[in-house]
């Protein structure tokens, strides 16, 4: 989706109503997850959890449900290929100070039909509106001895960079928006699936379940879930990052042993 205007500065977070202030007259949404702790088997499949909930709607107005799941924020570095005298070269790395490591929306209808641009932007709902941290002014920071350019949201190409983050993350199944992801199984009872790919970051995730009526958010339910990774592949990953030197030595010894074993086996034949 193209948007002409650069996004306005992130507004104050919309105040979330208390989780259960229930009266029978009030329009309200309640939700729960099948698992508050998700073990992502870091084989190639990832994990899938189900969010289910109920809508209490005593009024005659139809209500829309929007589920937003955000993973932990982390800085993102990007490079852009540019053509220099016929050769495609990478630019200096550009840094976003924080972007959700995972982001998905699921809704009953396309988001643009549920609420208007300003409302979605204010709530940070939708891939076009998700908050990616960028300061007012562009500057450089030095990380690992490399000078990065921090993206400023006032620069001309800010939107290109922002779209690139979203596009690349969508390609990795880390960002996703499903306009038909919320499915009503019965009157007032809905479910949505949260698909976590194997590369999803570990940590605390926040889920918001919004209820919209006539383009206005009328109720929200907040949930948290913890994502952990398990499995032999994860153990190898941890080992390689916690004790890199031992790991490297092991790799070499394994290689030498294999080479030696092969020459023994084949000499006998």
């Amino acid at each position: 989706m193209m948007q002409a205007l650069p996004p306005p500065p992130p507004a104050v977070e919309a105040l979330a109503p208390e989780r259960s202030v229930a009266t029978t007259e009030e329009v309200r949404v309640a939700a729960a997850l099948t698992d508050a702790r998700v073990m992502v088997d870091s084989s190639f499949r990832g994990a899938s959890i189900v969010l289910f909930g109920a809508v209490f709607n005593p009024t005659d107005d139809p209500a829309d449900v929007v589920v937003v799941v955000r993973g932990p924020d982390a800085p993102v570095r990007l490079v852009k290929k540019t053509r220099n005298t016929g050769v495609w070269l990478n630019s200096r790395p550009v840094l976003f100070e924080g972007a959700p490591g995972f982001y998905m929306t699921a809704s009953t209808r396309p988001l643009s039909d549920i609420a208007d641009f300003g409302q979605l932007r204010r709530l940070g709902v939708g891939l076009d509106h998700l908050r990616i941290n960028a300061p007012q002014e562009s500057r450089t920071v030095t990380r690992y001895g490399v000078r990065d350019v921090v993206v400023s949201r006032l620069e001309d190409d800010y939107l290109d960079w922002r779209r690139a983050v979203i596009r690349l993350r969508e390609g990795a199944a880390l960002y996703n928006s499903d306009p038909e992801g919320v499915e009503f199984v019965d009157r007032g009872l809905f479910r949505a699936e949260v698909e976590l790919p194997a590369v999803a970051p570990t940590g605390e995730y926040f889920a918001e379940v919004w209820l919209f009526q006539q383009g206005e958010p009328v109720s929200v339910s907040n949930l948290t879930l913890t994502v952990e990774k398990v499995g032999i592949e994860r153990d190898i990953f941890e080992f390689a990052h916690r004790r890199p030197w031992t790991y490297g030595l092991l790799c070499v010894l394994l290689a030498m042993f294999t080479g030696w074993a092969a020459s023994r086996v084949f000499r006998r034949h």
């Binding site: 990007l78 050769v87 495609w88 290109d160 960079w161």
Partner: peptide
């Protein structure tokens, strides 16, 4: 060849920040 062919996506993630 990849130096001279237009890449399918101009942008790519750079490693370094977890």
């Amino acid at each position: 060849l990849e130096l001279f062919v237009r890449p399918s996506d101009l942008f790519a993630f750079a490693p370094g920040v977890q």
